[in-house]
């Protein structure tokens, strides 16, 4: 991995929620640096604080203490417009539940972020079709979400995430609602596109298949980083993960 500046830097982040009268600390001080162009997986059991950390990185949630920097800009300092701009132009989101907007066709879903970004409609359609072609759905552009399978919907979501040429793609359990084969297809598609478009991919997952393509894996346990492993250190045997000694 070439030495580049960090696209995301998390420094001493804690987050606590109050559930009723009990205060729960979801994150207990996390430091993490993510390099440009990296494919990073955040792994951990549910309730480990994985999603919380993930939301912080995406600017969807604010830490109780500590700071999250995107390209060395503290995102807590951004106002609503700047945050919207950041989400629109620089971050692409992929969700476990696909979150394709039901009332719009595949193409309209892909072009929506470009409309927000102020592109004119001819350009958005042209680029939207090209992106759909890249994810293998060129002939499905006029289909509504309910006419598409889960895997196809996730492909639309990937095309949508790439719409404004973001620097970072955040994928929250992208294969969580997909079967094994479709999940694998989505993962390899994501990997291929991330290399073609040179984006940093950060995904929260507990899908072992993701490890194959990840440059680094961050294991979260109980609100802390348990360990960070590079791909070379990982060895994957049938359905099991074992760390080489």
């Amino acid at each position: 991995m070439p030495e580049t500046s960090n696209v995301v830097r998390v420094s001493g982040v804690t987050k606590s929620f109050t559930l009723g009268k009990i205060e729960v600390q979801a994150l207990k001080g996390v430091d993490l640096e993510i390099a440009r162009g990296e494919y990073l997986s955040i792994m951990g059991p549910s309730g480990s604080g994985k999603s919380t950390l993930f939301n912080m990185i995406g600017g969807l949630d604010k830490p109780s203490s500590g700071k999250v920097f995107i390209d060395e800009v503290d995102i807590a300092q951004l106002d609503a417009y700047e945050l919207a701009w950041l989400r629109c132009r620089k971050i692409g989101y992929i969700f476990q539940t696909f979150n394709i907007i039901q009332v719009m066709t595949a193409l309209e879903n892909v072009t929506l972020p470009m409309v927000f970004a102020g592109m004119n409609s001819d350009a958005t359609v042209k680029k939207g079709l090209r992106l759909l072609e890249q994810v293998g759905l060129a002939d499905r552009h006029s289909h509504k979400p309910f006419e598409l399978s889960g895997g196809q919907q996730q492909r639309v979501a990937i095309a949508r995430a790439l719409a404004n040429d973001p620097a970072i793609i955040l994928a929250d359990e992208p294969t969580g609602n997909l079967d094994l084969t479709t999940g694998e297809e989505i993962i390899s598609l994501l990997k291929r596109l991330s290399q073609e478009h040179r984006v940093t991919v950060i995904s929260a997952t507990h899908d072992i298949k993701m490890l194959n393509v990840s440059d680094r894996v961050v294991w979260i346990r109980d609100g802390r980083i348990d360990k960070i492993e590079n791909r070379e250190e990982l060895s994957i045997s049938i359905g099991k993960i074992r760390v080489r000694d």
Partner: peptide
Amino acid sequence: MAQERIFSDYPQKTARGNRLVVLPF
């Protein structure tokens, strides 16, 4: 604020600063 790369094409705040993201009528 150090602004490089990601924020390098961030439009300067002007009177139209809130037009960063648009949705035509």
